[in-house]
Amino acid sequence: MQDSFIEQVLEPVTHDLGGFKVHRVLPARERTMVGPFLFFDQMGPAVLPTGEGIDVRPHPHINLSTVTYLFAGAIDHRDSLGTRQRIEPGAVNLMTAGRGIVHSERSPGDERAAGPALSGIQTWLALPDAVEETDPDFQHVPAADLPVIEQDGATARIIMGQLWGARAPTTTHAGTVYAAIDLAPGSALPVDDSADERAVYLHDGDATLEGMRLEPTRLYVLRPGVRATLRSATGARVMLCGGDAFATPRHVWWNFVSSRPDRIEQAKRDWRAGAFPLVPDDQLEAIPLPDRPLTVSYP
């Protein structure tokens, strides 16, 4: 049965960051992209000790967009455009790096004082060749502005693109679909089949796809065009992602993504030389260029 509708199952690489774990399913040795998605991280869930928090120090990106979506907790985003934006559950932070941007992500002070919760998904999306070097940009979409679909006990919040007849206001640079699905006990939801490439990810709970039990933290890539239905007996949270297939491959090294390996080499030189713009009020703790990054593509 599995071969009829599942193309691949990608296992996570798990990193323990001290206090919380990150499960990464993209990029994988078997596959770098699903539609424009080329990085998929589950953060937590975790509750950090009182007074502590996450501190992702300033670091650069090129030729991609980052999407942060939380289920619990809050993160303060700052970037070299001068943006300062708190993100909370149900909202979207979309940062487009284009020719180059620097940002940091930290737990807000009020969250640290209470012992911050952290649970969410962070993804990177490749930019099409023609706009890889676009101007950097940032967009925050509040939870109230995202369309919500309710059907047969399932609730789907559309984060990006058009799904089940509704469209999110979040900017897309390529054909993109992205949704957070809450399955109530006994509920079911057909997976929208409009995108070239699609994958489902079980964040937590109990869910099946066409009768096949899903395992948490795995990414299930569907065969193009197949119709399949998600079901849950006891409740679950599932992510759906995908979009148009890219005609040209993407190379990933650390926080740099590009269709051109030489562009990544230039970004390395620029970061070493201090040629990227700075984040106002957060300039003193930049992450140095690593010798061996945790995030790489596998050409």
Score class of each variant (00 low, 15 high):
V13K: 14
A228K: 06
D76C: 12
R157T: 06
M1N: 14
M212P: 04
I121N: 06
A247W: 12
A74C: 02
V191G: 09
I101K: 00
A168N: 10
L10N: 05
A207W: 03
R231H: 11
E52N: 14
P185L: 11
I101C: 01
G153L: 08
T14E: 14
E105D: 03
P128R: 00
P216G: 05
T170L: 04
E133N: 11
L183G: 03
E150Y: 09
F5G: 10
D206K: 09
D55C: 12
I264W: 00
H173W: 08
P216K: 11
E30T: 10
D137W: 00
R227A: 15
A166F: 12
P49R: 12
T83K: 07
M160A: 15
Y220V: 04
N63A: 02
D3V: 13
H15C: 08
W254L: 10
D76G: 12
V34Y: 04
T248H: 14
G225N: 04
L64Q: 04
G161M: 05
D79L: 07
A166N: 13
A166R: 14
P108V: 01
M43Y: 03
T134M: 06
W253A: 09
L294P: 09
I6R: 10
T66Y: 01
L189M: 11
V9K: 08
H251I: 13
E88H: 10
R167Y: 10
D3G: 12
P136D: 00
I149N: 09
E285C: 09
H103L: 01
T32C: 09
D16S: 15
G35N: 06
D16H: 15
R24Q: 09
T248K: 15
F256K: 00
R99W: 04
F246C: 10
L214H: 03
Y220S: 08
V131K: 00
R29E: 15
D55K: 15
T68M: 08
D152T: 11
V238D: 00
I6P: 05
I54D: 01
P36E: 05
V148N: 03
D79E: 06
P261M: 11
G242L: 08
R99Q: 09
A184H: 06
G211C: 06
L146E: 07
L202A: 09
P142H: 07
G90N: 07
L202N: 03
A245R: 14
P261D: 08
P290H: 11
D76S: 14
I62Y: 00
L17E: 10
V177Y: 02
R218P: 01
A74R: 01
A114H: 12
L240N: 12
P288W: 07
D55R: 15
D291E: 15
T171W: 07
I75T: 03
L284K: 13
P49F: 04
T123P: 04
G120C: 03
W124H: 04
D270T: 01
A97I: 00
R269D: 13
W254A: 08
T208A: 13
R99L: 09
D137F: 00
D145A: 15
